[in-house]
Design a protein around this nucleic acid. Structure first.
Length: 484
DNA sequence: ATGTTC
């Protein structure tokens, strides 16, 4: 199955590699962010072939890019960035992924490790009890069609109107937790039905809630601006749009596979199914994608509300007094219309980020005002046994990657290979010996998510930091993890 | 990632 990349791959510098247009059918070149150590891992994956596939799409406004956490995905690689010209380019559901607006939310607290230690176990158990997780999990909310449509068009604003959070949470969410252009009518009845019972649920796979402590500060000015300091307890939520987003992707991949013939688009892999950005099919997918994105932001907002309730129950104090405040929330599976400078012209492009995080540099109006002079907070979760990072967006990223960086550690073992490697082992006990408490609904999920299934997050972050497409601010180490 | 193969 696994194919080692045998095509051309040229080293540009310590952190950059180029796949030139060695095939006449490639419209642009490939640009991969990696160092000597990481590129050998990347070569052993089909992901570089996928970078070349993406380079065949019409209307690319820049190279087919891959971040250091790149690995094989559906059609497009995970860790891939593709910016499309709006008039000549295409939109592809595979360039966003099945979990539309999978993303990460980071919270701060006023607690330090000492204040938490004696209650860590009971707090983790409380979070586990209060927040449904696992495959097919359903939540306490069972939305009717009317409420669901409001969620899809208003996103996190709906959650705040319902009392699940405050205006400050919205300010600190990418796009304010509400993407424009969402249309609930662009969703199939099946997608809508799958969405009704799942709001406020974590899901499975790599989704998690993690209690962490800041164990390193690299940029004191940025850390202060973000409200982070050494020794602070933080909490991270990683989840997406659940069955609704999956269904939206599946439905529209089907539609576009048929439409491609009509638009005379030829692609080297059927999984790159796409349609012109301004076509009926393209617009309809983007309207459905925005709705699913809004569902995902609402999902993370509701989970945050449940987190606050859990802290209140355990500490017998208000979430406000415990300092449970949003740092930021990022989407890392999404396509967005953005304005970028390419060469010496200003262009409107549709940036596909699939397992890639927006990393806008200082001054961009999309960044919350409190962070604008520093750059956007970039949230990078690692595997559950190692660490996570906060970085900041840079102007270098604006010039080179359409304001994008990596999204996590990235797999080195397939889910199946990870399960094989974990045969007969207790991953939770192995993590407990490292001082990390893990609660999970499923032994299988734990095996798939074992630390060895992922690249070293430190290495991945050093590459994006070294390349300058985002800069390290703080590092957090895990204390307790809830998995699906 | 996913009512993990309508």
């Amino acid at each position: 199955m696994s194919q080692i990349w045998k095509g051309p791959l040229e080293r540009i510098d310590a952190f950059r590699w180029r796949i030139p247009r060695f095939l006449g059918s490639m419209r642009v070149e490939g640009l991969i962010f990696a160092d000597e150590t990481l590129i050998s891992r990347v070569r052993a994956d089909q992901a570089l072939q996928q970078v070349v596939h993406v380079a065949h799409l019409p209307g690319l406004a820049g190279p087919s890019m891959a971040m250091p956490d790149i690995h094989w995905g559906y059609g497009f690689p995970i860790g891939g960035v593709a910016a499309m010209d709006i008039r000549e380019g295409v939109v592809s559901p595979g360039g966003v992924g099945y979990d539309i607006n999978c993303g990460v939310r980071l919270m701060r607290t006023d607690l330090d490790e000492d204040a938490l230690r004696s209650r860590l176990k009971i707090l983790t158990e409380r979070l586990y009890a209060n927040i449904p997780s696992g495959v097919g999990s359903s939540g306490k909310l069972k939305l009717d069609s009317r409420s669901l449509k409001k969620v899809l068009t208003r996103g996190s604003k709906w959650a705040v109107e319902q009392g699940f959070g405050c205006a400050r949470d919205l300010e600190r969410t990418e796009d304010g937790g509400c993407m424009e252009g969402a249309d609930a009518d662009a969703l199939s009845s099946r997608a809508l039905e799958r969405g009704k019972p799942q709001l406020g649920t974590l899901g499975a796979g790599n989704h998690f809630i993690e209690i962490q402590v800041v164990d390193a500060v690299y940029d004191f000015e940025a850390a202060r601006a973000y409200g982070l300091r050494q020794g602070m307890i933080t909490l991270m939520i990683h989840t997406g749009s659940r069955g609704l987003g999956y269904q939206v992707c599946d439905d529209h991949v089907g539609v576009m596979m048929k439409a491609m013939t009509r638009y005379q688009i030829e692609v080297p892999d059927r999984q790159l199914a796409c349609a012109p950005v301004e076509s009926a099919e393209g617009r309809r997918y983007l309207a459905a994608m925005a709705a699913a994105a809004n569902y995902a932001w609402t999902n993370r907002q509701i989970i945050l509300h449940c987190v606050r309730e859990s802290f209140e129950q355990v500490f017998q104090d208000s979430a406000e007094r415990l300092g449970l405040d949003m740092i930021y929330d990022v989407a890392h599976n999404i396509a967005k219309f953005e304005t970028h400078e390419t060469g010496n012209e200003t262009r409107r492009v549709l940036v596909h980020r699939k397992g890639a995080t927006r990393a806008f540099g200082p001054g961009r109006p999309e960044i919350p005002e409190v962070y604008r002079s520093i750059g956007q907070p970039v949230l990078i979760p690692g595997d559950m046994g190692t660490a996570s990072y906060v970085l900041r967006g840079t102007s270098a990223a604006m010039k080179e990657t359409f304001g994008s960086t990596c999204h996590g550690a990235g797999r080195v073992l397939s889910r199946h290979a990870a399960q094989r490697a974990a045969q007969g082992r207790r991953i939770d006990e192995e993590l407990a010996r490292k001082g990390i408490l893990v609660l999970s609904r499923s032994r299988k999920t734990l095996a798939e998510e074992a630390p060895e299934a992922y690249k070293d997050i430190h290495e991945v972050v050093e590459i994006v930091h070294g390349a300058g497409i985002s800069k390290k601010v703080v590092r957090m180490k895990p204390l307790a993890v809830i998995k699906g």
